[in-house]
Computed example of a mutant assay.
Amino acid sequence: MSEELAFEIDFHPVGDGEKGGDAITIQYGRLNSTYNHSQKVIVIDGGTLASGEKIVEHIKTVYNTDTVDLIINTHPDNDHCSGLREVINNLKVKEIWVHRPWLSSNEFLSMFKDGRITSNSLKEKLKDALNIVSEIESLAKSKRIILREPFTGLTFDDGVITVLGPTQDFYKELLPQFRCAPEPVNESLLSKAFSAVKDTVQMIAEAMHIETLDESGETSPENNSSVVSLFSYAGQKVLFTGDAGIPALKSVIEKASYNGIQLNNLHMLQVPHHGSKRNVSPSVLNSIKGQSAYISCPMKGDPKHPAKKVTNALIRRNMQPFHTKGNILCRKHNTHDRVGYSSATPIPFYDQVEE
C-alpha cells in the first residue's frame, strides 16, 4: 500500500441546530510512502467561521501540513463561504476558484428595470451584497493568491479536478435573478417558479418499487450557479455538487456525456443542498450514480435535510447514503484506518417519507 496513490475526503459538520452548510477537505498523493511522500490539499467550501477554524486545525493536525493547494467556493451563500476566510488567513493558500459576479456587471445593465443603474453602481451593489465573497477576493489579492472563475472545462493538477458546471452562458442567465441583483426586466424560467414558502410536512408511503421523488423540485438561482466538479484520482471518481439544482445537474449530465465523461460509475457522490428533495430527481439520479452518497446536513435537519424520499431514491439505485449530523465523515482510498475513527452507519430505507 505504501507506494500506491491514495486520497482521503472529509465532510466536516457545519452547525449544531437546524442550520447547516458545506465544508469539505481532500488530501491526495502518495500518502503512505516513507521515501516518496507527496501530498496536495483541496478545500471545497468552508461552512461558517466556526467550521472554518476546525478545518484549519484538521489540515494542520490530521493532514500534517499548513498548505492548501486549491480552494473552491461553490456559490456565494454564507453557509458555504464564511469559513473560507479562516482558511485563507491561517494557512498558505496557493489558488482560489470563486465566482465574482461583479466582473460581469457591464453585460447586464440592460436587463434591469432601473435605467439609472451604471456599471460601477451595479458592481458596488453586488460586492456589498456578497460581502464575504468580496472579502475573499480582497484577501486573495493581498496575499497574491491565484484567482480563477470556475466554469465548465477549468482543470487543476492535470485533471485531478475538472469543473463540469456551470457553463458561462448558464451562469450569465442566472446572475440577473440573484437576490442581490436589482429587479430584472424579465424573469427567467429558472427563477420564476422558485418559492421560499415552507413545505407542509405530511408523510406518505414508499417501498422499493414505489418512488415519490419527482422532477418538480425547484431551488434558487444562487444554488443553481453552484460549481459542480469531478475529482478523478487513483482510478476513482467523486462528484461534488454544492447546492446545484435539477436544471444545473441536467446541464452537467449533458455536457459530461458530450465530452465522453461517465457519471454513472462514481466512487462517491456528494448529494446537493444537504439532501433536499428540491435539488435532485429520478432522471438526475438515473444518470449520476456511485457506490455511496455523502450528505452534509445539520443535527436537527429532519425531515427536509436530508429528505427521506431522497435517501430512499439513492438506496433504490444501489447507492449507500451517509450523513454528517454533527460528525466528520471520511471517505478514504488506499489509506490506513485513522485512530479514533469508526465505521459510519448508512441511512436506512424508510417506508414513510415526507410528501
Score class of each variant (00 low, 15 high):
I55F: 02
I55S: 04
E57A: 05
H58Y: 13
K60T: 08
K60H: 02
V62I: 08
Y63R: 08
T65F: 03
D66V: 12
D66A: 08
V68K: 05
T74V: 11
D77T: 13
D77F: 10
N78F: 08
N78P: 10
D79R: 08
D79Y: 09
H80N: 12
G83A: 07
R85L: 15
E86T: 06
N89P: 00
N89F: 00
L91G: 09
K92P: 00
E95M: 08
I96F: 01
I96L: 04
W97A: 11
P101R: 02
W102N: 07
L109W: 06
F112V: 01
K113G: 00
K113Y: 00
R116C: 08
T118D: 01
N120R: 07
S121G: 01
L122R: 02
K127I: 01
K127M: 15
L130H: 02
L130D: 10
N131K: 14
N131P: 02
N131D: 11
I136G: 08
I136V: 08
I136N: 03
E137K: 10
A140L: 10
K141I: 10
S142Y: 13
S142K: 15
L147Q: 08
P150Y: 01
P150V: 03
F151N: 04
T152V: 05
G153Y: 07
G153D: 10
F156L: 09
G159Y: 06
G159I: 11
G159C: 10
I161P: 04
V163Y: 06
L164M: 04
G165D: 06
P166D: 05
P166N: 03
P166G: 06
Q168L: 15
Q168T: 13
